[in-house]
Design a protein around this nucleic acid. Structure first.
Length: 840
RNA sequence: GCCGGGGUGGCGGAACUGGUAGACGCACAGGACUUAAAAUCCUGUGGACCGCAAGGUCCGUGUCGGUUCGAUUCCGAUCCCCGGCACCA
């Protein structure tokens, strides 16, 4: 007979729902705790066993913190815009709204079946107009801001100082160029079959699925995240996040220090600016390379070379980002016929174009120092360009020397670096460049501005229109939300515009006051937009007047613990930190950072140790697990498998193991007739029982705090193993045990708690305290070593002195045997641990 | 190549701050209950060797070395695995 988990779980889920047990409101008398799960994309496939892992972990902490007296905010919602629903609509003609709602219902059912203690009154859905109204509102705030480099913060656009003497058009452009959201003609990843651009990070995924992605110049909305590069990097130091995630963000931001140097193009008025981290090697710059898309290319190319250059440009434009970067060892390029003057050597150096130089990094041009840069070296070898040694320490006959060393061959009439170590040489040459006004110290970031528009239907419309001159006009806040219109066909328009562009009466926007006709922006926002700020909407999900009441924001923020998959390490977490900082600068939120502590749950593999996938047939469906063993077993097993952060394989036998444990717990309290087990009596605990009880409270308490749920469960198993066979079980200990089990197996705990005669839910019972003194053993096992090897074990009273232990040890046959006739050189005594007799 | 994390029984994993390696669970073996099975309960279970037995000896935390009375833990080298990044000038 197994315990009636199906019945119990249904009963308590209904109870929690009906009584709104987990609904919270602000309560200044209690400390708050905001614990957040990364909200899921409700896919058609339903919940995966990976989801309950993180959700159970946060649920245990949420329930624990409630019992500890915290006011716990623990919400759930749906990140429901996205391409899969739209693609399904393209195939079936069914509105994505409908499939999305179906998927959400299924996800909600599955999540509810796990007994997670969410405050469902705060449920949000990014595709709900009442939600995306505020996504649009925040976009307008970003659009209507500029970055003040002096104050190092964003400010409203109407505070932007505007130079006099600008005409109206110039003024418009000046302002447009300062906004944190701006239009730019960009090389983008265009996928013809999907009919949309893709973010760089999305490209690989679609190529794997067999789609073609090409580079194309398109006008797109960009968000000026680069203005925050510095703060996004330095504020990481304050966060309690896994070191590898912080590192990934640092790498992504990619700060590097160096200098910008200007090179005069021979016989032209133009100069070429380059960024270099090694200004000390300026004397070794023997040629220059421009990215093929660099705007000076066609201007400086001589007629003899024009044909080649254009052909090369054509070829590289056809390559995708992936192709351009994966053909790493074979660099190509062509000479432009033009020369630049190396400002240090005054020599004429040839200007090439090559696609190993990227337009998007630095200035899109480099000074090539083949002696001290591997890429330049390889390129110079291939095309027979001059290689000069300017830093000693390597052998440039065989390879570029990229390390630090002593500068050589680096002097002109005005400045000499010769003899200086790299660091000093950098300083000196930068000073010289600055004096000559041809260069300056500079910090560069790998981070690029965020390409924020998509040519899709299923996303938030931009609250923007264009006038007849193509100028952008933001719509007033009162008109939000800008509703996503219904559409006949979800297929791409075929013109590189979103399906929205085909709806004439939506595209044409009539200003009510002036009756002027404007054209709406028909692109939509990327999926990341909704997830950038959802943690704020949970605080005040139904507020029709504000994205979030500021008193509520001050009470709940920041998020104390954020748990989710490592796949969002960079993008979601960087984007939402960025939005948060903009809101912070503008005074809408009170904290610099949204998520104080972050934990990534590990991946759950199939039973075969491989990643779960339909094609391998190793996918575990949580519905089936719950049906066969109950939600409490699923929860417990997911936590028992191993450390939360680790990747670990599923095991059906393992689920059976924890299921057996829960059955043992049930039988410990309830007999075959469903009555309270007659062995439960109101009797005092023995010293031994008290010790195990207090050890268990201590271990479980500490392990929850440190998120070591697997060992907490082990300890509870130890407790049950030692109490289950007692003929008489002390009721007081049993009650304490069921409380500490309750965050892990809440349904079972509620049922037993209520059968023990309690009319109130166990959810708000105070968490049991332990007494350190009572956790201590009075007799402990002392290890006796001879020269580091264990030779005997003694049962001795706690805190026995060295002398006592020594006397006892020396009497042991097994010890005598080894020390007899030997000289004792040293005795090491560690209280309550061991005695080590060192002999010669 | 660079950055981060990790290699512990047949398996998932424990082990505080340098102090008994293998908690807890799975699997397996033996036993009890049962007409039988399932369920449940009890016992054993890192390896090699010695012993009829009680028990004992040696080896053992990827590999090789070092520090130490003592190393899964600290240091150096090395191999392998996982995750991320990768022409970023």
């Amino acid at each position: 007979m197994t315990y009636p988990f199906l019945e119990i779980e249904k009963k308590w889920q209904e109870y929690w729902d009906k009584n709104q047990t987990f609904k919270v409101v602000e309560d200044p008398s209690k400390p708050k705790y905001y614990i957040l799960d990364m909200f899921p994309y409700p896919s058609g496939a339903g919940l995966h066993v990976g989801h309950p892992e993180g959700y159970t972990a946060t649920d245990i902490i949420a329930r624990y913190k409630r019992m500890k007296g915290y006011n716990v905010l623990h919400p759930m919602g749906w990140d429901a815009f996205g391409l899969p629903a739209e693609r399904y609509a393209m195939q079936t003609g069914i509105h994505p709204k409908i499939t999305t709602q179906q998927n959400i219902s299924n996800f909600r059912r599955q999540i509810k079946m796990l007994g997670l203690s969410y405050d469902w009154s705060r449920e949000i859905d990014t595709t709900d107009p009442n939600y995306y109204k505020w996504t649009q509102w925040i976009f307008l705030k970003i659009y209507n801001s500029w970055y003040d480099k002096e104050l190092n913060k964003a400010r409203p656009i109407n505070e932007l100082p505007i130079p006099n003497n600008l005409n109206e058009q110039e003024k418009y452009e000046y302002i447009a160029n300062q906004r944190l959201a701006y239009l730019a003609e960009m090389p983008v990843n265009w996928c013809e079959e999907l009919g949309t651009v893709l973010a760089n990070e999305e490209v690989d995924e679609w190529i794997e699925k067999g789609y073609k992605v090409e580079r194309k110049m398109m006008r797109q909305w960009m968000l000026r995240i680069t203005a925050y590069a510095d703060r996004l990097e330095s504020d990481l130091d304050e966060l309690d996040w896994p070191e590898n995630i912080k590192d990934m963000q640092r790498n992504w931001i990619g700060r590097s220090e160096g200098a910008e140097v200007e090179f005069q193009v021979k016989n032209h008025i133009d100069t070429i600016k380059v960024f270099t981290t090694r200004p000390d090697t300026l004397f070794g710059a023997t040629y220059m390379v421009l990215a093929p898309e660099h705007k000076l290319v066609e201007k400086i190319t001589t007629s003899d070379y024009m044909h080649n250059v254009l052909k090369y440009k054509e070829q590289s434009s056809l390559k995708s980002e992936l192709e351009r970067t994966s053909l790493d060892k074979n660099k190509t390029g062509v000479f432009t016929g033009a020369y630049a003057i190396n400002p240090a050597t005054k020599k004429e150096i040839p200007i090439w174009i090559a696609d190993y130089v990227l337009l998007s990094y630095g200035t899109g041009a480099i000074m090539a120092v083949p002696g001290h840069d591997e890429r330049d070296y390889e390129f110079a070898k291939k095309y027979n360009l001059e290689i000069v040694e300017v830093v000693s320490g390597g052998n440039i006959e065989t390879a570029a020397f990229t390390g630090d060393g002593i500068a050589v061959n680096s002097a002109n009439d005005e400045v000499s670096l010769n003899g200086l170590p790299t660091k000093e040489a950098k300083e000196k040459i930068i000073n010289w460049l600055q004096e000559k006004m041809i260069g300056k110290r500079m910090i560069n970031y790998k981070l690029r501005d965020w390409l924020f528009s998509r040519q899709r239907y299923w996303g938030e419309p931009f609250p923007l229109v264009y006038d007849e001159n193509g100028r952008v006009i933001d719509l007033p806040e009162e008109e939000l939300p800008i509703l996503l219109p219904d559409v006949e066909s979800y297929k791409p328009s075929g013109t590189g515009e979103s399906p929205l562009a085909t709806i004439e009466n939506w595209v044409n926007y009539v200003d009510k006051k002036t009756n002027k006709i404007y054209r709406r922006e028909t692109h939509t926002m990327p999926q990341w937009a909704g997830s950038c700020w959802y943690y704020l909407r949970y605080l005040d999900p139904n507020n029709p007047n504000k994205f979030c009441d500021s008193e509520k924001e001050k009470y709940w923020m920041p998020v104390d613990l954020y748990v989710g998959g490592a796949e969002h390490a960079v993008l979601h977490l960087l984007y939402s930190r960025f939005w948060h900082k903009v809101l912070y600068d503008l005074g809408y939120v009170s904290t610099k950072e949204p998520f104080i502590k972050l934990v990534n749950q590990g991946l759950i593999l199939g039973e075969d140790g491989q990643k779960m996938s339909k094609s391998l047939g190793n996918v575990i469906n949580p519905d089936e697990v719950v049906e066969n063993y109950g939600a409490d077993s699923l929860r417990l097993f997911e936590m028992f498998m191993g450390p939360l952060e680790d990747t670990k394989p599923w095991s059906t036998k393992g689920v059976e193991g924890v299921f057996r444990f829960l059955n043992r717990v049930w039988r410990m309290f309830i007999d075959e007739n469903g009555k309270i087990n007659a062995s439960l009596k109101d009797i005092p605990l023995s010293v031994e029982q008290e010790r195990i009880l207090h050890q268990t409270i201590k271990k479980v308490t500490n392990d929850i705090e440190t998120l070591n749920f697997n060992t907490a469960i082990s300890q509870m198993m130890i407790f049950v193993n030692s109490f289950i066979n007692l003929d008489v079980k002390p009721l007081s200990a049993m009650k304490i045990f069921i409380k500490i089990l309750s965050p892990f197996a809440p349904h079972l705990a509620e049922e037993i708690w209520s059968r023990l005669g309690n009319s109130q839910s166990i959810v708000f019972e105070p968490w049991p305290e332990y007494d350190e003194e009572k956790t201590k053993e009075d007799m402990i096992e002392m290890v006796i070593q001879v020269s580091g090897k264990v030779r005997a074990k003694l049962q001795i009273p706690l805190d026995s002195t060295e002398d006592l232990v020594k006397d006892l040890a020396m009497k042991q046959e097994s010890v005598k045997k080894y020390i007899e006739g030997k000289e004792i050189t040293k005795i090491i005594f560690i209280k309550n641990k061991l005695l080590n007799i060192v002999i010669k």
